[in-house]
């Protein structure tokens, strides 16, 4: 790790990168943003923006359950709950005649309320409020390793998941007729999104995590031609905005997550008029 820091000092001799916490934050951004740029494309194409929002909210309940069970490791309780929640929402969506957004909304509000009730008991919520906005400057080396593992796992799964997801996004019975297990594909994707959201939420925040997933892909969606360019642009926009947002937040002394999302939003609005007809 020291070698990496030394290399960063040599290659990037910027004032904002003098501190170790900023180096860690930059590395975290370089791991989180491609992950979200990648997954965002199919979240947008499969109309899952609202779903991932609900998943972000469920992190609160994840922490709450960890507290109730006496788990020291918040990440573990968030991951377990997030994955179960993702599977549950998808299951109910498939087995109910009610519209998907109503179901997701029910799950989303339940998880926020449940999380808030447990965490605010005895007026102790202030201790957890940091998870709402996130703080990328508090990333440790161990966290970076978790993010690296998540990114590597996501890339490996993505290779198998991308084509089936793309065909399913056009028509699910058609996908099934081609031998694609579209339900399994959807479950795998929701679990992947849940894992990505949960490993990153402490750094990006419950309120912003969904924007990081949707905005770069939506901006790329505006201008890209073809699936390959769509993915590449989404990842590039995500990474560039991640780094730009981090630098901006350093000089403006604001929340890094919010600055990153604002950069993504700016790119989205710039690309909006360039939309293909």
């Amino acid at each position: 790790m020291e070698t990496l820091y030394a290399a960063m000092d040599m290659l990037l001799p910027f004032e904002w990168l003098r501190y170790t916490f900023m180096k860690n934050a930059l590395l975290a951004m370089l791991l989180i943003t491609p992950l979200f740029g990648l997954l965002g494309t199919m979240a947008v194409d499969n109309k899952m923006a609202f779903f991932s929002d609900a998943l972000g909210h469920s992190a609160l309940t994840g922490i709450a359950i960890g507290v109730v069970l006496g788990w020291e490791n918040q990440m573990a309780s968030m991951l377990v709950f997030g994955v179960i929640w993702a599977i549950l929402i998808t299951f109910v969506k498939h087995h109910s005649k009610m519209s998907a957004d109503t179901i997701i909304s029910v799950f989303s509000s339940t998880s926020i309320a449940l999380g808030l009730v447990v965490l605010s008991r005895g007026g102790a919520f202030a201790k957890y409020s940091s998870v709402l906005v996130g703080d990328v400057l508090s990333v440790t080396q161990g966290d970076l390793l978790a993010l690296l593992l998540a990114l590597a796992a996501a890339c490996a799964v993505w290779v198998f998941l991308f084509n089936p997801l793309m065909i399913t996004s056009v028509n699910s019975p058609l996908a099934r007729s081609r031998g694609i297990r579209s339900r399994m594909t959807e479950y795998a994707f929701t679990i992947l999104v849940a894992v990505a959201v949960m490993v990153s939420i402490r750094w990006v925040g419950v309120m912003l995590i969904n924007s990081l997933l949707i905005l770069p892909a939506a901006a790329s969606h505006n201008v890209a031609r073809g699936a390959s360019q769509y993915m590449r642009l989404s990842v590039i926009i995500s990474v560039v905005c991640g780094v730009a947002g981090l630098v901006l937040s350093y000089y403006l002394n604001t929340s890094a997550g919010a600055a990153v999302v604002l950069c993504c939003a700016a790119v989205y609005f710039v690309t909006l008029p360039m939309r293909r007809k």
């Binding site: 790329s220 890209a224 073809g226 769509y230």
Partner: peptide, 8 residues
Amino acid sequence: FDRSSPVT
């Protein structure tokens, strides 16, 4: 499906 998707 999403008619604005860049998928060719």
